[in-house]
Design a protein around this nucleic acid. Structure first.
Length: 580
DNA sequence: CTAGGGTTAG
């Protein structure tokens, strides 16, 4: 009987219609007219095709027209909607299934857990985890892997780890889930550690492992492992598809090798908006604004439609390269040509762009005129950065005070305000802001820098004395800085703020983490080798100026990646052209 | 008769 139906004209008509909505609806109409509109197998097939046609409305209509859906129909609709990203719908169908007293299968459960992950719906996910335990599917490896990634995405890394630790059978996918969990939550080092553990246990990485590990390399600046993964990909003859290719581009760009990123980009067989955006962003963070804009135009010429993220990448590339004219043009095209509504992130880029270029009036006007609604705090923060950079104290103080009233728990605003007071010489105010922070028990984010030497990473924090060679490092740095002073470097005591006591300020400034990391790098590597630093925060003006001098007196190329971008220091100047 | 892990910004 089944077979007969599969070869029936109606079934073949469905297959022929495929995932195109109109033809499907025509076949559907035909089914109803011919009286076969109630046959389960046909309805199921129709339902899954409707869903694959990405029409959630039609899928809903179809499903609700079925009087008593069986578990097969529920499974089909839940699995398909979850897979296509209709997460809320898949959860609603799941609820109906439970209310109809139909037990979910392990397939249903993995699908709804994935939906919860996509929605970061921690509470709903916990309830479903309960269903998993009740139904006895807690030992199913698919369900477990889904749970691990769900908890990681919903922000509970601890539970993700617990689920992983209980898995009896750790497949590559299980390892991929937990490694990705750490990477996504900002623990790149731990992710890499787990990757090495996985290899030691004899589990062969697959291409998804490579994608995840490349992301961890990009995050931590681990070019050594990044290169290894690339070689592994080639050695294993993995297909460098868009996802893997994009991961390689991202890794090379974030590890400071833009040209290698470009080589990968040029060799990719297929590419999409995401790949182009990754490459554009890579140029942007190295200050290659012209190349970023050029690539953006090539992308459009290829007929690809840029998305919101693409525009963030291009606009921020313009901001970091002083390309005000181009930035204006791109922003206009976003609205006019692509009918995209600029969001806060784009406004921030624009204000930042004007601000860096010293066009404070344009920045302010942009806020007043272009941003109709109440400007978001992030927009004011960008404006504030511009005020500080170009020493407009009055406006800066005004904005900072506004930000403090809107976001009184954000330590960054206090630090900015205090820095502006310090620049203006109002040390009494500096003290006041400092006391406000203390009374609210807010802490400035701790800065650290890492440097890689012989495949090993060394971490330094400000005034760090934990390193076994501390004394030599400090002596070396002192000697280095005095040579810089002889060459004309003048330390600024302005931007160091109140994380330390008054008398320690000079000390703190002299021993910012990047300076320590550079000193150590210079000590441990031979002449001619570039020093690569990764810093979690933005560099301060003083370090930026000091490193220019260090690049001269030590005759070394120094490459620093800070929170926002790359700075290539060479022969006394920086690639950011002080557009930082 | 279907599933789990993987790509771009800030």
């Amino acid at each position: 009987m089944e077979n007969e139906q599969h070869h029936s004209p109606a079934y073949r008509a469905l297959l022929l219609a495929g995932t195109r909505l109109k033809p499907l609806q025509q076949v559907h109409a035909h089914l109803i007219v011919s009286g076969s509109g109630r046959i389960r197998s046909l309805l199921t097939k129709l339902l899954s095709l409707a869903c694959a046609a990405a029409s959630i409305t039609y899928t809903r209509r179809l499903f609700f027209a079925i009087p008593v859906p069986d578990s097969f129909l529920f499974n089909t609709v839940i699995v398909k909607t979850s897979k296509l990203g209709f997460s809320i719908d898949s959860l609603l169908f799941y609820r109906r299934m439970i209310l109809s007293n139909i037990s979910p299968s392990n397939y249903t459960l993995t699908a709804v857990i994935k939906s919860c992950a996509d929605l970061s719906a921690l509470e709903v996910g916990r309830v479903i985890h309960g269903h998993v335990l009740v139904s006895g599917y807690d030992l199913d490896s698919h369900v477990q892997a889904a749970l691990v990634s769900f908890y990681a995405k919903a922000g509970d890394l601890g539970v993700a780890r617990k689920v992983f630790d209980k898995m009896p059978d750790r497949t590559v996918v299980a390892w991929n889930s937990i490694i990705s969990a750490y990477e996504q939550n900002g623990f790149a080092k731990e992710a890499i550690g787990l990757f090495y553990l996985m290899r030691d246990l004899g589990v062969e990485p697959d291409s998804a492992t490579c994608v995840i590990v490349l992301a961890a390399c990009a995050q931590s600046g681990d070019i050594g492992l990044g290169n290894w993964v690339h070689e592994y990909v080639v050695g294993q003859d993995f297909d460098v598809n868009v996802i893997l290719g994009t991961s390689l581009i991202n890794m090379y760009a974030r590890c400071g090798h833009v040209s290698r990123a470009r080589e990968v980009f040029d060799l990719m067989m297929e590419s999409n908006v995401v790949a182009w955006t990754a490459m554009i962003s890579g140029y942007g963070m190295h200050g290659y604004g012209t190349q970023a804009v050029e690539l953006f135009n090539q992308m459009r010429a290829h007929g690809l439609r840029p998305n919101r993220i693409t525009f963030v990448a291009v606009l921020s590339a313009c901001a970091h390269a002083g390309l005000v004219h181009e930035g204006r043009h791109v922003f206009a095209s976003m609205k006019q040509e692509y009918r995209l509504v600029p969001g806060v992130e784009h406004h921030v880029c624009m204000v930042d762009m004007f601000g860096r270029a010293g066009l404070l009036n344009e920045a302010y006007q942009f806020i007043k005129e272009v941003i109709r609604e109440k400007p978001a705090p992030a927009v004011w923060t960008a404006m504030l950065g511009a005020c500080k950079m170009h020493k407009n104290f009055d406006l800066g103080v005004e904005i900072a005070e506004h930000l403090l009233s809107v976001e009184p728990e954000n330590p960054g605003h206090y630090v900015m305000l205090s820095n502006i007071y310090a620049l203006a010489g109002r040390m009494d105010r500096v003290e006041m802001v400092r006391n406000m922070m203390i009374s609210k028990s807010l802490k400035k984010e701790v800065g650290y820098s890492t440097v890689e030497i012989d495949q090993r990473t060394y971490l330094f924090s400000m005034g760090d004395k934990s390193h076994p060679e501390t004394n030599q490092i400090y002596r070396y740095l002192d000697e280095l800085m005095s040579r810089c002073r002889e060459a004309g470097y003048v330390p600024e005591s302005e931007s160091v703020m109140h994380e330390v006591e008054e008398e320690e300020r000079e000390f703190a400034l002299r021993y910012h983490s990047e300076k320590l990391a550079i000193a150590f790098g210079l000590m441990k590597t031979s002449d001619g080798m570039a020093i690569r630093i990764v810093k979690n925060l933005r560099m301060c003006e003083d370090c930026h100026s000091a490193i220019k001098y260090i690049s001269v007196v030590a005759n070394r190329e120094i490459i620093v990646r800070d929170r926002l971008r790359f700075h290539h220091f060479k022969d006394g100047s920086c690639s950011c052209l002080d557009y930082w």
